[in-house]
């Protein structure tokens, strides 16, 4: 239960998981400079959130999570949490 206590966020999202996801996201997008990203960070607020970033995120979902997502799926996401939810 210690694990659950430390990892469970409201809404049932595992903090440990989303932190790892954010690290993967940062690598996938290839930010020029370090950016502080939180689950509620709006994707549109990130300077590098562009078509190249979308390609990186699709590859990341595929290679790290074995999950196929489309450009349309990504366009529907507003925040990092929305992207994370695509993992299903």
């Amino acid at each position: 239960m210690i694990f659950l206590d430390s990892c469970l966020e409201s809404g049932g999202v595992f903090v440990a998981d989303i932190q790892q996801f954010i690290e993967q996201f940062q690598t996938a997008v290839d930010f020029q400079e370090a950016v502080d990203i939180q689950p509620d960070t709006e994707l549109a607020s990130l300077a590098e959130w562009d078509s190249l970033a979308a390609l990186g995120v699709i590859v990341m979902f595929d290679m790290e999570h074995g999950k196929t997502i489309t450009g349309t799926d990504i366009k529907a996401c507003k925040t990092i949490s929305d992207l994370f939810a695509l993992l299903g």
């Binding site: 078509s51 390609l55 699709i58 590859v59 196929t68 489309t70 450009g71």
Partner: peptide, 12 residues
């Protein structure tokens, strides 16, 4: 060129 569609097609 729809980059995401081409990427998904190619890698899948």
């Amino acid at each position: 060129l729809d980059g995401t569609a081409v990427l998904s097609f190619s890698t899948q």
